[in-house]
Design a binder for these strands. Structure first.
Lengths: 170, 170
DNA sequence: CCATATAGTTCTAAAACAGAACTGTCAAAT
DNA sequence: ATTTGACAGTTCTGTTTTAGAACTATATGG
């Protein structure tokens, strides 16, 4: 499967992974949320090769997750800032950080804490149901096909798997 | 930067990405949450090559995200089920799906809907503050170093970036 | 005229991945 | 008893991606 195919699958998760599902993209986005805006800033913070950084930034701009805006003329320079679509990735980032805080910390504890300005306290992110407000866990959720589902719905199998089915039949 | 180095960075996000931050791993985990348990199941659902699937499953087992348990003797066969550590990835999965539902759907609408058993309704996942229960957005959150932070904290720069600093100095 | 800052692009070698075929164990069918 | 098929991998070869380093371009300041 190619990256482009992923974005066309009838599965919101596959499509999202097609856009942000590689390690450098996720780390670049982490930097964005930590207020990094410029090429050199990303490069020195992450140690990513300049080549890949340029490519990933282009892709994020194409996807409408970052906007490239000039901050000076001569020489023309631009910085990268999150669009609303990009800001909406925040729950994904927080969910990833929180899992790491829970399962991947060493003796020294968490590298970063998060303070909620509204209530003033350090917090953990909690995922709740939009309808009843109760915290969610996998076992309390039932998945069923929506309007955009394909004909054989529960398994969002790819073109690749259909190809395989054909080759088995042959 | 190598994958192994990522897991040792003083950043919960980098560490988590070191474990689950590649496209196949994320898709395999999606299948796990959709109740797939067996090698052939993953393979035909995803169209992943058998080689990579075997490797990814091994890694997930090593990381304690999946457990490999026998379901029959002769021939010995195993299935892969999520541990608690694996189940705890659920908010990440839901956050990814929800972003895709919001920003990546086509005219036909969402491929999958989620129903909360407790309240019986189709829902969206919402991320809230553990302390005050209010929904979170990036701008309301202030990040500050925790006990596991390195000396120069806000920028969780890697060994790679330090190496770069040295080579610039030389 | 040289060094520095910024934002890239280009090159080569190494690593990861895709696609296909192959191995091994057993049960059921012929 | 031999063949077929299911299952869970492993091994091979060739392509794609990534790493690492050097190079380009535009401008400022000394």
């Amino acid at each position: 499967m190619k990256w482009k195919e992923l974005e066309e699958e009838p599965c919101s998760m596959a499509r999202t992974i097609g856009v942000i599902g590689d390690r450098w993209t996720l780390l670049i986005l982490r930097e964005c949320f930590l207020r990094t805006r410029r090429f050199e800033g990303f490069q020195s913070a992450l140690g990513i090769t300049r080549h890949l950084l340029a490519e990933r930034l282009k892709k994020l701009v194409r996807q409408g997750i970052l906007r490239r805006i000039p901050y000076q003329e001569s020489p023309k320079r631009h910085e990268y800032i999150l669009t609303q679509k990009g800001l909406d990735l925040y729950p994904i980032m927080m969910a990833i950080v929180h899992w790491g805080d829970t399962h991947m910390v060493d003796e020294r504890g968490r590298p970063l804490l998060h303070q909620h300005r509204k209530c003033g306290k350090d917090f953990d992110p909690v995922m709740v149901c939009s309808e009843c407000g109760e915290p969610l866990s996998a076992k309390e959720v039932h998945t069923h096909p929506g309007p955009g589902a394909r004909s054989t719905p529960p398994n969002p199998a790819s073109a690749a798997s259909k190809a395989k089915a054909r080759s088995r039949a042959a």
